[in-house]
Design a protein around this nucleic acid. Structure first.
Length: 153
DNA sequence: GCCAACGTTGGC
DNA sequence: GCCAACGTTGGC
């Protein structure tokens, strides 16, 4: 079982949206970065746990946790000509982009701000703090424990 | 809105 | 394959 951090813009898809899904899980899609795609396709597995991160918003930070309930499959949006995520170069035989399904685990009482994470010595090696722009990131077990402990404090 | 840090594109 | 120009991400 591995840990990850997934970024989402809450205006598009928030932890509340994930909790509101009628069937109990939501599709994590729209990834259009190769490094993130490779992680999603090759390393993210069913049962892995996810820090749900809100980006590009008033208080960026970790908003809750989720669990992967379906491993990578071709992102349907790449074939949808009306979708902003449409990719004309992608084919059904050789899909370029992938998505996973996640189910909510916990919603933090308050978003754990990025600014707070930056103050935590135990988190100084987090990919989030070292390489800001990756939307799917590996998280170590120690980092997972530190983040979830801060969220309860 | 600004801007730094990337990633991508395309000419050569 | 190099690299300049351009686009995107995302914090502030």
């Amino acid at each position: 079982m591995n840990y990850w951090l997934f970024k989402s813009e809450p205006d598009e898809y928030s932890i509340d949206d994930l909790f509101a899904e009628a069937d109990g899980s939501g599709r994590w899609d729209g990834i259009r970065n190769y490094q993130a795609r490779n992680l999603l396709r090759d390393a993210v597995s069913e049962g892995d746990q996810v820090l749900f991160y809100h980006s590009s918003c008033k208080v960026p930070g970790v908003a809750g946790t989720a669990r992967v309930v379906r491993a990578a499959y071709p992102d349907p949006a790449q074939f949808d000509t009306h979708s902003p995520y449409h990719d004309p170069k992608s084919t059904a035989e050789a899909p370029r982009w992938f998505c996973v399904d996640i189910a909510p685990l916990a919603r933090f009482d308050e978003v754990l701000p990025l600014a707070r994470l930056k103050q935590e010595p135990a988190l100084e090696d987090m990919v989030l703090l070292r390489q800001g722009r990756l939307s799917v990131q590996p998280v170590t077990a120690a980092q997972w424990r530190a983040v979830t402990r801060l969220a309860q404090a």
